[in-house]
């Protein structure tokens, strides 16, 4: 398995990376390379130029910044899973990072690379949507912030424009009492999500569900919010029966993927079951 020939550069600064990206029209930006190198070896991707971001300092960090958890694009899944701030304030994100592939992949793969690649079965997309995250990109015309709901535009497709590089991902810090969880059914061989569900839930003073955001990955061409199920759950008592009843509506209006592992009917069932598990896990 040998990739097609390409030229390689590992620029020391983001500006230099952006310049190279402008100059080489068929260049691909490489973060950890855990998806890209695999696709290049299979010749699914044959970029003529690789711009490796590894030498650019200050793109790997997890910090609290203006009410959000700011994650540098080059932060590895392993670093994110281990970050105390994330584990404490946004368990769903730590759980998603921890559930990716295996240790060898988590030590190298990055959140920026994963979100730019937009694999329909990747884990972060569900969390990004459920948390109302923001993807920060830098391009020839400066910095742009793309809300989660506008990021995923199709199968392996995002709002990232030509010449732009993902530099940061922001997750608003959840107010006290708002809880989150991510659960998935792992493909037994690849480790990708057959279905993954992220839930962010807040109970009101009356003990009922005041607010809930629920998003799925692995089930369709890209991650999606299950708004009908959210609507059905709002105002309900947070009982297992009520959660399961609301989840009947989770696959509503979604064109579900079919493959050898799961046909559309089974995926719809997985969406209902894992949606309920995510909400119940968030409620603890």
């Amino acid at each position: 398995m040998i990739p097609a020939a390409f030229d390689y550069a590992a620029p020391a600064t983001l500006d230099e990376a952006l310049r190279l990206l402008r100059r080489h029209r068929h260049a691909k930006v490489m973060a950890g390379g855990q998806s890209l190198l695999s696709l290049m070896k299979l010749r699914v991707a044959s970029p003529s130029f690789i711009i490796d971001l590894r030498r650019i300092g200050r793109l790997a960090y997890v910090k609290e910044d203006k009410g959000a958890i700011a994650v540098g694009a080059m932060t590895t899944h392993a670093a994110l899973a281990a970050a105390a701030l994330v584990r404490r304030r946004l368990p769903a994100l730590a759980q998603a990072a921890e559930a990716i592939g295996d240790l060898q992949v988590r030590n190298v793969g990055t959140i920026g690379g994963s979100l730019a690649h937009a694999d329909p079965a990747a884990d972060y997309p569900a969390v990004l949507l459920a948390c109302d995250g923001v993807v920060v990109v830098r391009g020839p015309r400066g910095t742009r912030k793309v809300p989660a709901g506008q990021w995923f535009t199709g199968l392996f497709a995002t709002a990232l424009r030509s010449g732009e590089i993902v530099v940061e991902v922001q997750f608003p810090i959840l107010p006290a009492g708002t809880r989150s969880a991510y659960v998935k059914m792992k493909h037994p061989a690849s480790g990708f999500a057959v279905v993954g569900a992220a839930a962010v839930v807040r109970l009101g003073r009356d003990g009922r569900v005041a607010d809930v955001r629920l998003a799925f990955t692995g089930a369709a061409s890209h991650a999606f919010r299950a708004r009908a199920a959210e609507e059905a759950l709002r105002g309900q008592e947070p009982t297992e029966a009520a959660v399961r009843a609301a989840m009947a509506r989770a696959p509503e209006g979604v064109d579900l993927l079919e493959d050898l592992v799961a046909d559309a009917a089974y995926r719809a069932q997985l969406v209902r079951v894992y949606g309920a598990r995510a909400v119940l896990a968030a409620l603890g």
Binding site: M1, Q34, L103, Q104, V105, N107, V108, A189
Partner: peptide, 23 residues
């Protein structure tokens, strides 16, 4: 050669990686 099997596991700066998926 796809980072699936772990037969090429080595340490890079002390972290376990698949040497086949690192240039």
């Amino acid at each position: 050669e796809q980072g699936e099997c772990g037969s090429c596991s080595v340490w890079l700066d002390g972290e376990l990686v698949c040497a086949c998926l690192v240039l």
